[in-house]
Design a protein around this nucleic acid. Structure first.
Lengths: 209, 209
DNA sequence: CAGGTTCCGATGCGGTCGCATCGGAAACCG
DNA sequence: CGGTTTCCGATGCGACCGCATCGGAACCTG
């Protein structure tokens, strides 16, 4: 067996470069040449790892999607001692990508969402990321509301149909987080204001349960 | 005075063509040649109306922004007999661009939001559109909550600081609407589900006031 | 160390882009 | 009706794009 290379590692390396460029110039501002330069590899190497540009972008999207989801998940396992309610607050803040150090990730996310509105392959990848997040948040909302989660479905809760309520609340929360992220990126809202809106919404949520 | 042309009218004509193309291929899929073809004018005419491509996109953005805002505003003046609460529901649905016939407008909007994250000029134009909408919704929320609006500021309301609450609720509503729009466009959410989320949120809002 | 296999850097190609240029058509005035 | 000014269609330019190609470097095996 001749010369071998850590393909997967290189793909991740290139994906990171893609993210940097998307952050700076948007999705369409990414060229194979620039990616190669940023990743400090040759264009040939990029072309070997990904057959087409679209395949590269797709990989980068799932890469960043997994990174966000994983970070949210680790947030949960890291602090199991706290109340489900405060955990949910942290998760919501995490999903909204409001903190300054995640601003780049937010821009990347928004760029891919916009691209997904035109490119079905990107849309498919985005949906799976969203689905994973939604399941996570549904469980969290249900727990915070006082219900119990058994084998993936919620038992009990505030009332009959509590599971449905939890899902609706989760969907509301995720959409609100995404909308706030966009508003902050555009500059229509400051991160602090967005945080306040999010906090107020969560407060109202607890009051209702 | 020699040959004269309705410049403003032509600019709007071209802006419509831009919107069609943005809807189909995204913001970066718009080329001067395609715009000229769709608007049924020559490239030279396009270049005469807009000195650069960016200027053209900027005009198209403010054009669609004004169109949405105007539609929302006319929704209000059209039905002054109904309760402020139900009016707010209509407006929220309008802003979220959930109805099928506004799907194109939603895609255009999302494309511009993503572009604004990279292009400061687009961001500035978007902000003014958002600001106009926010003021509209703040007034509406305040009225629906039972307060009175005098000369642009809210007097009274549910409690001291009612105006602040109304603004926070308006911001929540707008961010939620934008987030839902994005989720629907990506295909993660159906329009009906989004409508349900929006309705549930509004119901909770009335219960709190 | 020879041979075979994998990898990749350099280069070229066809295509498309935004934009500049310019000659002539169109329209109005005196 | 000739002059003047505005307008625009056609064309060309330089740059850049994604992708294909290929000769040789790198590396493992026997």
């Amino acid at each position: 067996m001749p010369k071998q290379v850590d393909h997967e590692g290189r793909r991740r390396l290139i994906a990171e470069a893609v993210c940097l460029l998307v952050d700076e110039h948007g999705l369409e501002g990414v060229t194979l040449r620039d990616v190669a330069t940023r990743a400090e590899v040759s264009m040939g190497a990029v072309q070997r790892c990904f057959r087409t540009k679209e395949e590269m972008l797709l990989f980068a999207l799932t890469h960043v999607g997994e990174r966000v989801t994983e970070r949210v998940r680790s947030r949960l396992t890291a602090g199991p001692a706290q109340s489900a309610a405060s955990e949910l607050g942290l998760v919501a803040g995490e999903v909204a990508l409001l903190r300054e150090e995640h601003r780049a990730e937010a821009r990347i996310w928004l760029a891919f969402v916009a691209g997904a509105a035109v490119n079905p392959a990107l849309a498919e990848a985005l949906r799976s990321s969203y689905a994973a997040l939604e399941e996570l948040v549904v469980r969290l909302v249900a727990e915070a509301a006082g219900g119990e989660v058994v084998g993936g479905s919620v038992i009990g809760g505030a009332a009959a149909g509590g599971a449905v309520v939890a899902r609706t609340e989760a969907r509301t929360l995720l959409a609100l987080a995404d909308g706030l992220t966009a508003h902050v990126l555009v500059g229509h809202r400051t991160a602090a204001e967005a945080e306040e809106v999010l906090h107020a919404h969560l407060t109202g949520l607890w009051a209702r349960c």
